[in-house]
Computed example of a mutant assay.
Amino acid sequence: MNADPYRLANVPGLTRVENTDLQQLMARCAELTRPAYPHQQVYGRYCTIQEYVDCPPELAYEYLRQGHHLEEWTFSLRDFAPTGTPGLWAGDDRLEEKTRIYCKVVANAEAMTVDFHCSWDQSDKLWMVYLMRVVPAQLVFDKPGSVITWTNCRHPYYDRNPYPDLSPRADRPWVGDYWDLFYAGHTVEMANLKAILEHRHQRGLPVSSSPRATVTR
């Protein structure tokens, strides 16, 4: 007798070899595979991009985990300086005039993950979380270099500004207004990241740069 201690047979909607044959699986996969997909369906709740970079993963991770490099590869984050809170930095997001952005880097060297916890206007709740991971390309592509992934989840605050009174002006657009452009915008920034890492590595230059002199804000 095949015991089912977790009673999976009672869980509705599971597709497993126990209840689905190969032909049924192929038919289901065909239903889920389309020649084109609506943007909202693909990027409505999550935005994930990835890129191969001809740079050793250890160097790519070391570069990403140092938050001051955001000023190099992002389109608009500039002038970061440490705040009075350990690990928290403040800078300007020049995407919108007079917009302050706060950022804390949470990194794990063993997994080579680098998460940027950010927010506009205030630092009490860092709700804009950019999840990045460096994967050795040797592991997945059987060649030197890195694969870098980057995921954003659509936090409810993207749809409404929870701190409208902190906006520098009443007519300033909200960061969530740009959500439909996240895939395109992050692709541009990933291309910047790739270009910087490959340019320095291929020329034998130090991949990471020293942080500029900053003044605590």
Score class of each variant (00 low, 15 high):
71 E>M: 06
63 Y>T: 00
58 E>C: 00
30 A>R: 09
182 F>R: 00
139 L>T: 10
164 P>N: 12
111 A>E: 06
206 P>C: 00
49 I>Y: 04
215 V>R: 07
161 N>S: 08
208 S>I: 05
6 Y>G: 12
3 A>I: 11
151 T>D: 02
141 F>N: 03
205 L>I: 14
182 F>G: 00
125 K>M: 13
66 Q>L: 06
207 V>L: 00
182 F>H: 05
13 G>I: 10
199 H>Q: 11
120 W>G: 10
178 Y>H: 03
203 R>G: 01
84 G>S: 11
33 T>F: 07
23 Q>G: 13
178 Y>A: 12
49 I>P: 00
177 D>R: 14
130 Y>A: 09
155 H>I: 02
159 D>F: 14
171 D>W: 15
150 W>S: 01
99 T>L: 13
29 C>D: 15
62 E>G: 08
171 D>S: 11
155 H>D: 14
43 Y>P: 03
202 Q>R: 07
192 N>F: 04
145 G>Q: 06
180 D>H: 11
118 C>D: 03
170 A>M: 12
50 Q>N: 10
45 R>N: 08
188 V>A: 05
100 R>D: 10
70 L>C: 09
70 L>A: 12
130 Y>K: 14
93 D>C: 07
27 A>Y: 15
174 W>Y: 10
105 V>M: 05
136 P>T: 15
90 A>F: 05
168 P>S: 07
70 L>Y: 13
6 Y>A: 14
93 D>P: 04
24 Q>C: 07
195 A>T: 01
53 V>A: 00
65 R>A: 05
161 N>T: 08
96 E>G: 11
203 R>M: 01
121 D>H: 04
129 V>W: 07
43 Y>F: 12
58 E>F: 01
56 P>K: 08
118 C>Y: 12
3 A>K: 12
162 P>R: 15
95 L>V: 01
203 R>F: 01
58 E>Q: 02
